[in-house]
Design a protein around this nucleic acid. Sequence first.
DNA 1: GGCGCCATGTAAACCGTTACATGATTCA
DNA 2: TGAATCATGTAACGGTTTACATGGCGCC
Lengths: 178, 178
Amino acid sequence: MSSRHFILGLLTQRSMSGYDVKQSLENLCWLIGSPSFGSLYPALHSLSEDGLASMDVIHSGDKPPRKVYTITDKGRKALEEWLHQSMDSETSQKAFLMRLMLASNLSRPGLIAYLQQRHARVAEYQEALQVQEETSDLGQRLAYDYGLAIATAELAWLDRMLEKIARPALAGEGLDSI
Amino acid sequence: MSSRHFILGLLTQRSMSGYDVKQSLENLCWLIGSPSFGSLYPALHSLSEDGLASMDVIHSGDKPPRKVYTITDKGRKALEEWLHQSMDSETSQKAFLMRLMLASNLSRPGLIAYLQQRHARVAEYQEALQVQEETSDLGQRLAYDYGLAIATAELAWLDRMLEKIARPALAGEGLDSI
DNA sequence: GGCGCCATGTAAACCGTTACATGATTCA
DNA sequence: TGAATCATGTAACGGTTTACATGGCGCC
């Protein structure tokens, strides 16, 4: 998935310091993880060096100065290119969620296609888990049952979202109301 | 989480070759991933070298010989030790599921405690996602909504399992009927 | 004949974490 | 006074993937 591109994508939400990026991932880190500072800061440096992001040092009072990064036009182009190139073979939930976080950078048809692809993929996994023969191993049974529950919940979520998004926007009821 | 211990744990289900291990993870790889052969084979070698697993070469007809690994007593001891030492700070879904797959190696109270701990942790994340203020960013809204749906589904699953497991086993309705 | 599956393995390259280093502020 | 939060950074270490290497079987 490339954490470099992901971090770049997060900068489209708002300009952020390394510390900010870490905080913004806190709520979902149990699903996607959160990069350590040891990889985060170097990544921001390299984005800045390559001209994909610009850095501003913000001195606010007596607090330690913050280095705030903003995505540049070049960065937006690079991100768009990367987002549009095939996301096939990315089957993991983590990769899905990371891209989902960057949904603002997708066209509406692009987002719909993305969710539909995900739906098809998860449905495959769900089926594979249902078909499984009985195992005697408790752990395996629990794990398969858990996987089935998560797959089912994800498919239900995708159905809901696709209905909301794909429905031609009625008055005051577009993407905004999600 | 240490893939080495995880692989060792999988060998408690049945004796397996490297190829078998990979296949057995196929159905859940979208949630926990699957190690590449480049890490899997060396891991099995090292387990064998350390006496935690024994290796048998199986020649079946004209097919390429398979190297089947079996966990040893020393391996079981090492696994148990590792399973009982603190699993705190492991908050990720992946780590949870990996340990869940090894549930057969836990005592019933140990399993219950594990599920309860997980419940408490996921409930925290669920709450954090609910409390979140409104964001204008579509991706963030989608991602948070997705996270909320997954957290809710997982909590429901944990409730169901805890009810099944914690209930004093009635006639013919113990852990087996999960 | 070519493709895909079975089956194992090695080495280099890559990426990320861990540990260390610094320093100010706020709260108990 | 000590701990937690804010805030940034480097270097070594470790683990994983990627790419390469090999070889037989069965199917279209």
